[in-house]
Design a protein around this nucleic acid. Structure first.
Lengths: 232, 232, 232, 232
DNA sequence: AATGAATGAGTTTTCATTCAT
DNA sequence: GATGAATGAAAACTCATTCAT
C-alpha cells in the first residue's frame, strides 16, 4: 500500500479511537469498539497498531505534537519573551480547544491508564514547565521581570492552564476564548510582569457565579459553609 | 463485630488499597492484590466493601475528607481573608504531603478510572474553586484586592496547586514545604494582593535546574530547542 | 444437649430450609439464607447438618417419610385392595397439600439439584410404582380387575398423581380436594375397576376452562391452532 | 459468517450442552465443560449464546419445538379426535425417545434449574394439558366419550406420559415403544373411550418385576412391607 | 490487505465451610 | 453449644490478540 493511503487509514483509526476513548475511558474501551467506530474489522486495527496500548500512546503522541505545534505557531513574530510566553499559553489552549475529545483523553484518562502513558505525560509536563522556566530566565535576564523562583512559577503557569482546560472539558467553562485573557493576565501578574498590576475591570461581576451555581455538588464532599466552617 | 474493630480492619484494607492502587493504577490492580497487601483473603475485602469500584471510591472519599479537614484546620485563627486563602492552600498541600500514595491515586489515576470517580473529583475541583472564588469575592468586597474575574483566578489558583502536587508525586519536586511559599506568593500576585508585588529574591538561581536535568525526556515528544524552535 | 432439644432445633432449621429452598431453589439458596430464616448463625447449621447437600437430602427424606405415613394412614381400615389403592393416592395428595413448600422442593427442584437427590427420588418413584403394581396384582388375583400391564398402569397412576400436584404447586389447580375424586375415578377406569365405567357427570361444564384461560402462555412455545395445526 | 455455518456451529454447541447438562445437571455444569465437550474454547460458547442461562433455555426451546412438531406429525391423517389424541401421545413419546439426553434435561433438571425455565416448562405443561382438554371436549361433543372433568383428565393424561418418560430416562423402562400401547390403552380407558374396556391380556405376568429388582433402594426412604405395613 | 471467528488467560465475585472466640 | 468473621476455591464472563480465509 502506498504510504499515503496507509497514513490516511491510520488517521481514520486514530480519529475513531480518540472519540471512543474520550467517551468511555481507556479500560472500558475495547479494540472492537474502536474498529467499529472506524468502520473496519477488529483485525485491521492490528495492521496499523501493534497493540491497544500502542494505539493509545500514538493518540497521546499525536495530541502532544499538535499542541506543541500550536505553541510554536503562536509564538511566531511575537516581539519579546513575555509576549511569547503569553502566546504559548494561548497557543496551547487553542490547540486543545478544537479537540475536546483529545483533551478529555490527554487530561483525564491518560495519566492513570497506563504506566507508559503516565511517564509520557510527566515528560510533557516537565517539557512545558522547563520551557516556561527558560522563558522566565530569559525575561529576568532581560530585566523584564524581577527575580523569582522560576520552577514554581513554571509549574503554576502550566497548572493554571491545565486546570482551565479541565474545567472546559467538564463543562464548567463554556468558552475557552473568553477566559483566556484573564488567565494570561493572572499568570503575568504572577510572574511580576510590568503592566499587569491591575486585574481587568468589568469581569468581576461574573465572579460570584460558580459559587451559587454549583451548590448541588457541594454537599457530597464538604462540610457546609465553605472553608470557613468551624472557624470563629 | 464491634464497630471499632470493624473500622480498624476497614482502615487496614483501605491503607493497603491506597498503596496498591498508587503503584499500579486502578485497572491494573486486582482485588486479590489488595487483599494480599492487606494480608487477608480475597473474600475478606468483600466483607468490608461491596465491590472493587466501591473500594476505590471509599479511598477517594477518605482522601477528600482528610484534605478538607486539613484546609479547615489551617484557616483557623487567620486574621483576614487573604491570609485564610493562603492558609487554605498550605493546608491542602500539607494534608497531601503526608500521603503521597493518596495524592497519586487522587490526582493521577482516579479521574480516568471510573465515571463515578470522575464526577466525584469534578465536584471536588468545583468545590475548591468555588471556595476560592468566595474568598476572592470577600477580599474584593473588603477592598483587599482589586476587582478581577474570580472564576478564572479560582481555577488558576486550584490548578497551580494541583500541578505542584503532581510534580511532587512524580518526583520533580522534592520538598513540598520548600516550594510552598513561592506558590503562595505567585498566586497572591496573581490575584493582585498588596505587598505581593515583588517576587522573593534568592530563589531565582535554582530555576534553571529542571530544564537541564530532564533533557532525556524531551526528545520523545518535542522538537529540540524549546518553544522557540522554528522561530526566527 | 438433650436429644429432645437437639431434635427441636433440627426441625426449626429444616422448616426454615424448606421455606427458603422452595422460594429460591437449591442452587440460589445459600446456607446463610437458611440460617437467617431459622434465626441462627451460619455455623450453627453445620452443627446439625454436615453440609448443604445433606441438609437438602434430610429435607427430602423428611418429606418422603411424611407422605409415606400419610399413605399408610389413609389405607387403614379400607375394605378391599381397590379401595386401599384409591386411598393411597388420596393419602399422598393430602400429605402434600398441607405443605406446598415441600411439594415445590420435592417435585420441582429436587430432581435436578443433586445427583444423590435424583437417585433418592427415583427410588421413591419406583417404590410408589411398585406398591401400586403390587396392589394391582393383588386386585387381579382377587378378580377385582381384569388382567393388565401392571407396570404401565403403575407408572400412569403415579404420574397422574404427580402431575396434579405439580399443577397445584404452579397455581394451575386451586383446590386439590376438589380435583381428587376425578383423579381417582380416572385411574380406576384406567385399571378397569368395576363401577368406574362412567365418568362423573356434572363436571364436564368446567372442562373448557383451561384452554381459554391460558391463551397467554401458549404463543411462547407452540404454533397456533393446537395439535391440529398443519392437519388437513 | 454465513447463516448456515453459524447455525451448524450453534447446533454443535447445543448438542454438546445437551449431553453435558443431561449428565451433570445445570448447576454442576460449567460453561467450560460445555465448550470442551463441543471441542471449542470457552469464549466461543459466548459467541453463540449470551450466557449460560440463555444457552440452557435455547436447549429447552429446541426440545420443545421438536416435541411439538412430533405431535403435529403424528396426528396427520388420523380419522377421528380420539385417534388423534392417542397419536399425540405416541408422537410426543417418539420425539423424546430419540433423545434421551434431551428428556433428562427437560424432565429432571430444567424445572429446578432456573426460574425462567420453570415458567417455560409450566407453560408447556399447560399447553399440553389444554390441547388434550380441547380434544376431549371435541370428543365429548361428538359423542365419542361420556362427559368428564376434562381438566383432570388432561393433567392425568400428561402426567402418565411424563412419568413413563421419566422411568425410561432412569432406566426403569427399557423400551418406550413396547409400553406405549399399554399407556395409550390406560388413558383411553381413563377418559371412557369406547372399545377400551378391557385391558390387554398377556402383559400382566411382567408386572411383579420392578418391585423385586429394586429392593435395595426401598430401605432408604420407606418402611418395608409396602403400603400395607402397619395395617392390620 | 482485510476480515472477524476463535482463543483462553485473567478478573470479579460468590459462598460452602472452618474455627477462634 | 453458638457465633459469624475469615477463608480461598471455583465459576461466569470479557476481551486483547491471532490467523485461516
Amino acid at each position: 500500500m502506498e504510504a499515503e493511503k496507509r497514513l490516511e487509514k491510520e488517521t481514520m483509526i486514530l480519529d475513531a479511537a480518540e472519540r471512543v476513548f474520550a467517551a468511555r475511558g481507556y479500560a472500558a474501551t475495547t479494540v472492537k469498539d474502536v474498529a467499529q467506530e472506524a468502520g473496519v474489522a477488529t483485525g485491521t486495527v492490528y495492521l496499523y497498531f501493534p497493540s491497544k496500548e500502542e494505539l493509545f500512546l500514538a493518540l497521546i503522541d499525536r495530541g502532544t505534537r499538535a499542541v506543541l505545534e500550536g505553541i510554536v505557531r503562536a509564538r511566531q513574530g511575537k516581539p519579546d519573551v513575555i509576549a511569547k510566553l503569553a502566546a504559548s499559553l494561548e497557543g496551547a489552549v487553542r490547540a486543545f480547544s478544537a479537540h475536546r475529545d483529545l483533551a478529555r483523553v490527554a487530561l483525564l484518562q491518560a495519566p492513570g491508564a497506563l504506566p507508559a502513558c503516565e511517564e509520557r505525560l510527566a515528560q510533557l509536563h516537565r517539557l512545558f514547565a522547563d520551557y516556561v522556566a527558560q522563558d522566565l530566565e530569559e525575561a529576568r535576564a532581560a530585566g523584564l521581570i524581577p527575580p523569582l523562583d522560576a520552577r514554581v512559577a513554571a509549574w503554576a503557569w502550566v497548572g493554571s492552564f491545565a486546570e482551565i482546560l479541565l474545567a472546559w472539558v467538564r463543562g464548567d467553562v463554556a468558552d475557552l476564548e473568553e477566559v483566556l485573557p484573564g488567565l494570561v493576565a493572572y499568570n503575568l501578574r504572577g510572574i511580576g510582569a510590568p503592566g499587569s498590576r491591575q486585574p481587568q475591570r468589568g469581569q468581576a461581576a461574573r465572579s460570584a457565579g460558580p459559587a451559587e451555581r454549583r451548590s448541588a455538588g457541594r454537599d457530597q464532599a464538604a462540610a457546609p459553609g465553605g472553608f470557613a466552617a468551624g472557624e470563629r
